[in-house]
Design a protein around this nucleic acid. Structure first.
Lengths: 137, 137
DNA sequence: TATTATTCATACCTGTTTGATATGATATAT
DNA sequence: ATATATCATATCAAACAGGTATGAATAATA
């Protein structure tokens, strides 16, 4: 399941996407409009910034704007930043690889094979740009 | 990410699938062969049994066997039994539906729309029979 | 230049979940 | 009877999730 962090992060990105470029949006405004606890949101915003999904402008009249075109942002990117791996098991994650404790031979592990396939089919779904996902039905 | 419960459960199902039918396999044997903590495994086995994925034979020479043909068992089934919802957000889960606390109108929620689509594409991947997933490359 | 609005950084707290163990009862083949 | 199993419930420690607190740094503007 998606964490609240991830959900809030996605909401935030969508919110920024909707605003006219250039004019930064403050954490306060995002927090109030999207019902996200202010301080929690600040943490999330920082993560999104350090990973260059958004840019921040400090001081009065400051705030946040997208750091790239929304067509270059995907759910997968956001999830990886705030939640970590997308892969269902760590031993097949590309960005967050970790060996399984009990696994004796990774090369012949059947579970691994199965989930490598699952991952291969799942990642493209999550890597579509949010501009393609977020439209009217 | 997949929980250890789910991983152990899948390993267990695969293990049982490999054994000749009829002859029950004890928790001890599964535990030793698959490196699963014995008592933890017992819990998992009970869950799998109450959900009719496996059958148990009590007493000496007892153990466990699959309750249905492996072609009728999917990763999705196993995950739902031991981990709960597959959907990334609860408001689109069919078997484990739950409203989002902060959501004002579910019908118009953009996040929900996005993840309904994700779910629709993801579920079929996980619902394939394990017999189709678990084969040589 | 003082004030105000803001981001930035770090640390902390609390409840829940996860992974696992403990204890003991019940059933059955031999 | 005894050994080998499952079955049931309760408990526990560590990790994690969600959220708060405190305060410093920065910049527009009155």
């Amino acid at each position: 399941m998606l964490s609240k962090r991830a959900k809030y992060a996605i909401k935030t990105i969508l919110f920024l996407k909707d605003r006219p470029e250039g004019k930064p949006i403050s954490a306060k405004v995002i927090s109030e409009n999207e019902n996200i606890p202010y301080k929690f949101l600040e943490n999330i915003l920082r993560e999104l910034r350090t990973h260059r999904l958004i840019k921040s402008i400090r001081g009065s009249e400051g705030g946040y704007v997208l750091a790239k075109d929304p067509s270059e942002i995907s759910i997968a990117q956001i999830m990886r930043i705030v939640d970590g791996p997308i892969a269902l098991i760590p031993c097949i994650s590309e960005k967050f690889y970790e060996a399984c404790a009990e696994c004796e031979d990774e090369q012949t592990c059947r579970i691994r094979k199965m989930f490598a396939e699952v991952r291969a089919e799942m990642v493209p779904i999550l890597e579509r740009p949010i501009t393609a996902m977020d439209k009217e039905a």
